[in-house]
Design a binder for these strands. Sequence first.
DNA 1: CGTTGAGTTGACTGATCTCAAATACGGTGG
DNA 2: CCACCGTATTTGAGATCAGTCAACTCAACG
Lengths: 256, 256
Amino acid sequence: MKKTEGGKVVKLESVKAACQDCSLRELCLPLGLNANDLSALDSLIKRTRKLKKGEFVYQIGQPLTSLYAIRAGSAKTCEIAATGEVQITGFHLAGELLGVDGISADRHHCDAVALESTEVCEIPFDKLEQLAHDVPGLQHQLFKIFSREIVHDSEHLLMLGKMNAEERLAVCLLSFSHRFQELGYSSSDFKLSMSRQDLGDYLGLALETVSRLFSRFQDEGLLAVDGRRIQILDSVRLAAVAGTGAINIPTHKFSN
Amino acid sequence: MKKTEGGKVVKLESVKAACQDCSLRELCLPLGLNANDLSALDSLIKRTRKLKKGEFVYQIGQPLTSLYAIRAGSAKTCEIAATGEVQITGFHLAGELLGVDGISADRHHCDAVALESTEVCEIPFDKLEQLAHDVPGLQHQLFKIFSREIVHDSEHLLMLGKMNAEERLAVCLLSFSHRFQELGYSSSDFKLSMSRQDLGDYLGLALETVSRLFSRFQDEGLLAVDGRRIQILDSVRLAAVAGTGAINIPTHKFSN
DNA sequence: CGTTGAGTTGACTGATCTCAAATACGGTGG
DNA sequence: CCACCGTATTTGAGATCAGTCAACTCAACG
């Protein structure tokens, strides 16, 4: 995760601060974009929006104009049923792209809401498409990002369709653990930015059930829970509760 | 849905039979591709594979080489939990594209299985990407198709996370009704190609629950059920059971 | 220092699952 | 064309996981 001073693939020093450690790095850097391409991408960005907790990145029905890369903070995307019930389809951390739902119908299909003070880069979609055409590899990278979202959704479907409450929460916590680690934070000690209600709406559980599960996991010595601060005390057993398969523990994974 | 002899937007007569009424038409025709582009697309297609019921279009772990457009028949895509439990992430009819899950990691993330005698066109992905670069609008069209899959998944998530068993089955049946209609078949009288078990694995329910729901819907006069043949007798009430919002009734949809 | 929202915990309820058995169906071989 | 077999489906009865309703605690905030 550490960058030594002399960048190897890309001369990071030469581009604006915006992209070099921003949310888009997952989108850009794996490409091996050269400095020119990177700064082209950089110049796409319309503006950086700062959002307070609870503010919308976009809302259902708004015309799609841009995608949004989370630069800092976190967000949830919410589907709303006719009855008013909410299903959270994803929690999104720094480095992730929001808004792909809107491409299909040229307007957003879900709400995206900041879970805390959050900063997003607004990337006009038409310009991004143009750039994807002009820059070799960017089209492929976008396909991959979209595909990754589909894969994530199908894992979420498996969770909601086949797992019991314990497994769901365990999988969810391990996923956070893994993603925080990838962002350079502790994988075993973190503060969640969402409420029990949000977790329930993501996991397909009542908030009381989520709360009870936290208590149970704490009693069993898997976690230390203090409100939204979570410490994973026994990741091996937590993974066992998760039913193995779903998410790999960040130690090592069998190759094949 | 009917094609009169003289095509209007595209001179269909001038291209090979392969694409003109094939599964890819959703992918191609909305573009207003000209005849040259269409035949370029046509020439991409590696081969048409005929599959018997139960055969794999692709399997988890196989390297991604192609996407597959369903030309006739139907398929399911299945996620497998570590415990061996199956979650079906989608049922796919003619005109739909399979395999997008595999782009993310260059290998397939789920199984795709024919539900009946099925024919798919194999489209080498690298060539498709090249064509997407060369043909104006195809890139955008692919983005849209991928986005549509994400939207569908999030509706599925809402179903599994927030709906009760009745609502789930009703939504599912209305979705089939709508899709059959779009393919030119009856929207109120059709034969399902999947088992009760498959429906349960899609809906996050036990097969017995699905069976009981069919019986109940029949008792209530919503459906006539004869094994896998389903007649929708009261689509208005069925939509009411579905909780409205989820899927539009196939009469007419508001334009924009 | 009262108000408000978030979280925890308990008691009870019920929708759905599981287990089990009966029945119908579809395909196959004689 | 029919009998037979295995699979799919239906139906019943009982068990259970998670939801609902409700009360209480706690922390943040004006």
